[in-house]
């Protein structure tokens, strides 16, 4: 059940990403181009995703002591704003703005079978490995 839940959750995520327009780099760049020819459509993705998740998390975490198919909720507990968080987020934004893919949409877009997308994903994984070296 644990695996089936993860698969269905992934399916919903992929459906959502492709429906929203997040897998379209032109759309994403247009959304980020607020000082140029701004296309605000994608604000509704973040908006509806956050509202849905906010309500759902409240219901789930407020009413249950543990998840259905695991022994406990794995919720991040760290609260410090350290330089690693700031530098990491800043770099991520630069990479996102440069081509228009963040990790989820890049993975979803693999199905468009473009070697450019696949190259992005391969280098993203290499980047994670590099980032991990600096994390230690």
């Amino acid at each position: 059940m644990k695996r089936l839940s993860a698969l269905i959750s992934g399916l919903l995520f992929g459906l959502g990403l492709a429906a929203s327009g997040m897998t379209d780099t032109r759309k994403v760049i247009g959304f980020l181009d607020i000082f140029g020819n701004w296309d605000p459509d994608l604000i509704f993705v973040m908006g509806s995703a956050v509202i849905t998740t906010f309500i759902g998390f409240k219901l789930v975490l407020g009413n249950r002591a543990q998840p259905l198919f695991a022994s406990m909720f794995s919720i991040p507990t760290r609260s410090e704003i350290d330089p690693r968080l700031v530098i990491g987020a800043a770099l991520f934004g630069i990479g996102w703005g440069l081509y228009g893919y963040c990790p989820g949409p890049a993975l979803a877009a693999i199905i468009y079978l473009s070697p450019v997308t696949i190259g992005f994903v391969i280098f993203m994984v290499i980047g994670m490995k590099l980032g991990n070296l600096f994390s230690k």
Partner: peptide
Amino acid sequence: PLIGGVFIGLSAILLMLSIGKIAGV
């Protein structure tokens, strides 16, 4: 975008409810 966002939210809720994980890709 609105429908897409709701699906992403439902995905995050399902992953939390079922296995207690954050849907961070």
